[in-house]
Write a protein that binds this DNA or RNA. Sequence first.
DNA 1: CGGAAAATAGCACGATCGTTCGTGCATTTC
DNA 2: GAAATGCACGAACGATCGTGCTATTTTCCG
Lengths: 200, 200
Amino acid sequence: MTTATQPRKRATTRETILDHAYALARRDGLEGLSIGGLAADVGMSKSGVFAHFGSREELQLAVLDTGRNRFVSQVLMPALKQPRGLPRLRAIVANWFAWAREHQSGCVLLSAASEYDGRDGALHDGVVRQQSGWRDELQKAIAQAVELGHLRSDTEVAQLAFEIYALMLGLHHDAGLFGFDEAGQCTRAAFERLWRSWQT
Amino acid sequence: MTTATQPRKRATTRETILDHAYALARRDGLEGLSIGGLAADVGMSKSGVFAHFGSREELQLAVLDTGRNRFVSQVLMPALKQPRGLPRLRAIVANWFAWAREHQSGCVLLSAASEYDGRDGALHDGVVRQQSGWRDELQKAIAQAVELGHLRSDTEVAQLAFEIYALMLGLHHDAGLFGFDEAGQCTRAAFERLWRSWQT
DNA sequence: CGGAAAATAGCACGATCGTTCGTGCATTTC
DNA sequence: GAAATGCACGAACGATCGTGCTATTTTCCG
């Protein structure tokens, strides 16, 4: 009340909405997200929520972007504090593990990838852009490890990025269906084997 | 023709419906499947389609089973004609490759796994049963290859099954987003490396 | 060919979907 | 203090959702 609720109100409310929307989308996917359900979850009216985005698609895009930001700030950014090369690469994988543990009940980015890979539209484009952007970051970290001599000089960057990504897909998949502990063990063992075969 | 030709119409119509439902579910997932849309696609009335299943959930379960049957008959069964051990295991992977090529626009079994891994209900149970059943088959083929000396005797069966599955997840993922050719190359290279490190 | 049985269509229901519109209440600006 | 702006609400829209009921049509068997 005393504190000035300037145009700040809009931004904070929008973030509150996106918080709830992200949580709902983790369970039901971006396609399962409904404005009515979201409004009830937030404690607002349908039209109040709707006004913040203008359309359902814009809401979905905003939730996708929320997921991207959270992933980047939890997985990529902390790893950038590690020295280039293998340490940073292993930090990325370790942070990604933590992400998977917290998202075993559903990851918006992954479900979005499987929801929109077969259609076209703004959401498809957003997913592809997000996924290829992350793959680029992964390849960049791998390339640095190769240049610094941490990985074999004949390492195929895109190939290793694919295999890392595949293992994390396996982790997400098995963790969601069979439990995280068993899946984590398998994934960890696979990574050890992977590092060993590419390390110098 | 023999004796059980009483309600022949029912079975054939049901299969026609499931054909269309399977195609629709490949694009929109089992959650995106609607009875009205399915009826329009088949060319029947909503109630006519509905009567064949009794509920939407039963329809979704039937579609899931359709997917399972097609996967088994296209991937597993042809491979059983190959001799036990590594030949059969490689045949499974090869058939799985073909499956992924034909399903790059969306695989019902995989999308169902990500749609229902975070909730509970009959569909969740069905997905888990289907996935663990397939994993068992995979492990059986691996175990035979170990027993026959085609794979190293210290091979951890569950571990190798996980890695194979993870690579196929990577293939599906990348094929859907970035195209099958590039994804197929990466996956093939990863498999060669995988065989080499476990082979005797 | 006729009659029983099965399969499909037609219609209606309550609920929910995304979206639009007008309005009231704060807060800011003049 | 008056005017303007920002934000959320409530009501209502046409559409579609899944699911019942009741006819009507089609299929099958004697």
